[in-house]
Write a protein that binds this DNA or RNA. Structure first.
Length: 772
DNA sequence: GAGCACTGC
């Protein structure tokens, strides 16, 4: 109680924040005795053991007490005092804890009791890379603290803010906190920020880490905790000014690792063999097989079905449930991974088994219970960025040792498991890289650079990132933003740049939206932007490709794919039963719903930025051309020209590209804008719409300064038009000059005339006067 | 005439 007397906030606490409600509750004495940034583990436990909730004044429920017992048992609780000591003495703490340590749920609560956010009005934030994690952990912690979700504990993710003025602990996606920082550069609403899953090194986490380091140097009152699951803690410690490290053991079961003695030539074949061998020889327990993509997974499932049936017949094995899993799979199909393994065919017969064949989605995003065996061929599709051609693409490549470890861990969540790696141990040690390259080294940074500018970080070259990005990638981003008019010649944010940065989408898309009012078509452009921001809406199941193509043709627009997307969106908004309608038309309902959500968000941003929401008369001949002009204002850097040999060449880069076969365009328009450059066996441009070369010169004259263009037909055509424009302009000017000269002459004549008139009048008057 | 790992504002 000594501390309580010294607590300057105590009076406030007793009077306000902690009033008992309903008569049955009461103050939590231990809670009221807490002093910010000096609590002990014992004090905190006393607060939790009290009869009443310090945060609400209400008596604790039985449910609370049941959960509390389990929380006390978590590995992280044994280190509570150590953690508090570290955070009292340091601004940064790095915490490493494996699965099951309890760090994500407990550490933020320790911080709540230690910083007493209800006293100074500043919140504790805990960031997650994914939305589901933010919402589900917030719910769990609300239960643990015996409060209603959205009150003292809440979450904030895109499209959903579940917080209130009472919120002291907020779980949010890292992207959300970054957005907040764009309008509050010092994150002044927070007294502590906990960055969770930092080892994943997502783009947003990396930026956020840099930002927090920057903020910490300006705010000595803020505490920052970086939590990670890997043992690569030294890098984090070093980055955060030699921060102290706390290691918390996890709670998982051992996983035995097996390697192949020789390298496998065909990993798909090897994977299927291994799965069936496990089924034939290993005890009960489900299998998780990692493959790289949809097509491979469907193929593997077909083979497993065929050979599995054969095996079951011959070897009297139990029945198999084979389930594919990838993110674009419809939700009802995804649910299948939670089904139980099938029962034995006869009582006492061999047990059934579930085989989940999955992409990386099962590595971090989805947890499947009951997995005992993991098969890891060692490959995944990974994003790579080529700044030279400004293209992001997906490439099947070997995973890292950290990812392999993560995959193996999936076998030991419920009991001891086994992991079969389809590569040699030597290969694991010598060929695999230690960590997957962080996303920031594999991405186009256009949007990120704009965000950084908005965050008040101007010196990008000396930006303090954990892994600095390649200068060429930065250059490309700056170049793009400069051409869009978002940055001036000194790389400072312009008014346009401020506007663009308000939109949570690609800068080109945002530019298209803010240009739309010039063409009176904001509403339509918002719809197109939303449709371009979601995964492909068109489904094309292998068994119904023709029917799907026919359904798609119904939406085709002769101007191109963007207008077809607009047709789809309008039709979707007009249909009465979206679910049935989507099924009938081979459309992805999930994507359309997402598009609708995004459109609403974009509309709100536009309205807030005073961008008028306009539409042209649908029957006007200009309706579509005006939309295409607005698109050109955003995408003038992604234009291709059809050369006379029938090949498209991208403008300025002179890359040979093909219209993607998914395009609705049946003819080949001479000039097109494209949304995406797809790099597979060939170079494709996907989602394509016809434009006019005159527009390019009108709308983006700074980009279409032809002197810097490599020679090609497109350039010659543009030059001709430019010449014509120049001549026309000259002619116009000449005419204007002539008109001016003649006007001047007229004016002079008029003046002369009027002078003469005056003189005549005067003379006449004089004459009259004389006569008098 | 062909793909679409996964997130996120």
């Amino acid at each position: 109680m000594e501390a309580a007397r010294n607590n300057p906030y105590l009076a406030h606490m007793h009077n306000g924040g902690n009033a008992a409600t309903g008569g049955q509750g009461g103050p939590n004495e231990a809670f009221n005795a807490l002093v910010p940034l000096s609590t002990t583990s014992a004090q905190q436990e006393a607060v939790e053991n009290d009869a009443c909730n310090g945060l609400t004044g209400r008596p604790f429920t039985q449910k609370y007490k049941d959960i509390l017992a389990k929380r006390r048992d978590l590995p992280v609780n044994k280190q509570r005092q150590k953690f508090l000591d570290l955070i009292h003495k340091n601004q940064f703490v790095v915490l490493v804890g494996e699965t099951g340590s309890g760090k994500t749920t407990q550490i933020p609560q320790y911080m709540v009791f230690d910083m007493l956010p209800q006293v100074d009005g500043k919140m504790i934030a805990c960031t997650q890379p994914r939305r589901v994690a933010a919402t589900s952990v917030a719910q769990r912690v609300a239960d643990e603290l015996d409060v209603k979700l959205g009150q003292q504990v809440g979450y904030s993710i895109r499209f959903e803010d579940c917080t209130s003025s009472n919120t002291v602990l907020k779980y949010c996606t890292d992207g959300m906190l970054l957005r907040e920082a764009m309008s509050d550069n010092l994150l002044s609403r927070y007294s502590a920020v906990i960055l969770d899953e930092a080892h994943e090194r997502t783009l947003n986490t990396d930026i956020l880490m840099s930002l927090m380091k920057n903020i910490a140097s300006q705010r000595s009152d803020i505490k920052i905790i970086v939590m990670s699951a890997t043992l690569d803690s030294e890098k984090f410690q070093k980055y955060f000014n030699d921060a102290p490290l706390l290691t918390v053991p996890g709670r998982t079961f051992p996983v035995e690792i097996y390697y192949t003695p020789e390298p496998e030539r065909d990993y798909l074949e090897a994977a299927i063999k291994t799965a069936l061998q496990i089924h034939a020889a290993e005890p009960e327990g489900d299998i998780l097989l990692f493959l790289t993509g949809e097509e491979e997974i469907e193929e593997a499932c077909r083979l497993l079905h065929a050979r599995g049936d054969d095996l079951i017949r011959r070897a009297n094995c139990g029945p198999l449930l084979i389930v594919p899993l990838y993110s674009t799979l419809p939700p009802n199909m995804q649910q299948k991974i939670f089904e139980k393994a099938p029962e034995p065919r006869s009582k006492g017969g061999a047990p059934g088994r579930k085989i989940v064949v999955s992409t990386n989605v099962a590595e971090t995003s989805l947890t499947i219970d009951g997995i005992v065996y993991v098969i890891d061929p060692g490959f995944a599709k990974q994003k790579v960025y080529n700044p030279r051609v400004r293209v992001e693409s997906l490439l099947v490549s070997p995973i890292s040792r950290a990812a392999a470890q993560q995959r193996a861990g999936r076998a030991g969540r419920t009991r001891p498991g086994k992991c079969f790696r389809l590569y040699t141990e030597k290969s694991f040690n010598n060929d695999l890289i230690e960590q997957t390259y962080p996303e920031i080294l594999r991405s186009n940074l256009g949007s990120i650079v704009l965000q950084l500018k908005k965050l008040g970080i101007n010196d990008l070259v000396h930006l303090d990132l954990m892994d600095p990005c390649a200068p060429e990638v930065l250059m490309r981003a700056l170049e793009l933003l400069h051409y869009l008019g978002a940055l001036d010649d000194d790389a400072n944010l312009t008014d346009i740049g401020h506007l663009i940065s308000e939109f949570p989408i690609d800068p080109q898309l945002a530019k298209m939206i803010i240009s739309a009012p010039n063409y009176g078509c904001t509403n339509e452009v918002l719809s197109i932007a939303a449709m371009l921001s979601v995964p492909n809406v068109f489904l094309r199941p292998r068994e119904a490709q023709r029917a799907a193509d026919m359904a798609k043709a119904e939406f085709a627009h002769m101007d191109g794919d963007h207008m077809s997307l607009l047709n789809v969106y309008h039709a979707y908004k007009g249909c009465s039963e979206p679910s049935q309608w989507c099924w009938d038309n081979f459309l992805q309902l999930r994507s359309l719903k997402a598009a609708d959500n995004i459109r609403e968000q974009l509309r709100r941003v536009a309205a807030k930025s005073n961008i008028p929401l306009l539409s042209n008369d649908f029957n006007s001949a200009d309706y579509y051309p005006k939309i295409r002009k607005a698109m050109t204002a955003g995408y003038f850097m992604q234009v291709a020209h059809l050369e006379r040999n029938g090949q498209y060449l991208t403008v300025k880069d002179n890359q040979i590209v093909l219209l993607h076969p998914s395009s609705v365009l049946e003819r080949k328009p001479e000039w097109v804008v494209y949304n995406e450059f797809v790099l597979t066996k060939r170079h494709y441009i996907r989602t394509v719409t016809e434009v006019k070369p005159e527009w390019l010169l009108d709308i983006a004259p700074h980009y279409y300064d032809l002197s810097g263009f490599p020679p090609c037909e497109g350039k010659r055509i543009l030059e001709k038009i430019a010449l014509k424009n120049a001549l026309a302009q000259e002619e116009q000017e000449t005419r204007k000059r002539k008109k001016e000269t003649s006007e001047k002459k007229d004016k002079k004549d008029k003046k002369d005339r009027s002078d003469k008139d005056k003189k005549d009048k005067k003379d006449k008057k004089e004459k009259r006067d004389k006569r008098k």
